[in-house]
């Protein structure tokens, strides 16, 4: 009896501890987003009114900024481009990265290590420098001013990123698990597909999400390789149309930020839920 009570009290205390710690994080993460949302719904007169309360909307919610974004710019075209580019570039990179990451984590060839290091080291050169020679390559490939120029170049930073991240996850999987399978006569590829991938799934999901976001937010290549409005990505398009010299269309810019991130977050959470929660549910007993 008494033991039960104590453990219940402990449970409550532990939960309270958890929430008390999570709340500041959530607040820190969410407040700027909240601020973007209300800025996107506020009229300009209130935005520029020094006497108004900055985190409220006092003179009525308006949708003009969204209407401007959707009606006066090619926002949906840009979103579509961003989506195609990100999905294709991330998927291609992921496949390469799984193979490369696994080889680096497990295989013991002489060349593997130095190749891996070389791949990573090219990653140390920032895109703000690489875009110049890459723009030549894009022209040689006959891809300039198309979304394919981005689909082809994005893997150059995605593959190193994903490979090394995945390698880390592959290494967390105890070697014995795999060795059992290998002893049972499974081939390397079979072991990878049947044993390693399912176990590394959280890492793969993670890697996909972050890789996707890197392409989604990429700016330098998207700016320099593509010129026509119809082929621009969301970030480049939005800033090009809504920041005009010293005039910022604050409401519409923030509306763009909200629309370009909210659907993605929902998909992400669904993903995370599906894999991470399923696994965590039983992992820790309260």
């Amino acid at each position: 009896m008494q033991v039960g009570v104590r453990s219940r009290a402990e449970k409550i205390r532990s939960a309270a501890f958890g929430y008390a710690n999570v709340v500041p994080f959530v607040f820190f993460a969410l407040f700027p987003f909240y601020y973007m949302v209300i800025t996107s719904l506020k009229n300009d007169a209130e935005l520029y009114d020094l006497k108004s309360v900055p985190f409220l909307i006092q003179t009525g919610v308006i949708t003009d900024h969204y209407r401007y974004l959707f009606g006066k710019t090619e926002f949906f075209t840009w979103m579509k481009n961003s989506l195609i580019i990100s999905v294709v570039a991330t998927s291609v990179s992921l496949v390469i990265a799984i193979l490369a990451g696994y080889s680096l984590a497990r295989l013991r060839f002489r060349g593997v290590s130095s190749f891996g290091t070389a791949v990573f080291i090219t990653y140390l050169v920032p895109p703000t420098l690489l875009f110049l020679p890459l723009s030549q390559v894009v022209v040689w490939l006959g891809l300039s001013d198309t979304i394919w120029s981005l689909i082809v170049t994005y893997p150059t930073f995605l593959v190193p990123f994903s490979t090394w991240l995945l390698m880390g996850y592959f290494r967390t999987i105890p070697r014995e698990v795999e060795e059992c399978a290998l002893v049972d006569g499974a081939s390397r590829i079979q072991t990878l597909l049947r044993i390693v991938l399912p176990m590394a799934l959280p890492g793969i999901v993670c890697c996909t999400l972050f890789g996707f976001t890197l392409t989604w937010n990429e700016f330098t290549y998207a700016l320099t390789f593509v010129s026509q409005t119809a082929n621009k990505t969301a970030v480049v398009g939005v800033t090009a149309d809504l920041i005009r010299g010293d005039i910022y269309y604050w409401g519409s810019l923030m509306a763009g930020a909200v629309v370009a991130s909210l659907p993605i977050v929902i998909v992400y959470v669904w993903f995370l839920d599906y894999y991470v929660s399923g696994l965590t549910a039983g992992a820790v007993k309260g």
Partner: peptide, 23 residues
């Protein structure tokens, strides 16, 4: 075709067009 981008970004754009001799 007239393309318009933010003024500060023209630096990168010009440099890339000259490097690749196309644009």
């Amino acid at each position: 075709r007239v393309d318009a981008i933010q003024a500060p970004q023209l630096f990168a754009k010009r440099a890339a067009q000259v490097a690749s001799q196309s644009g």
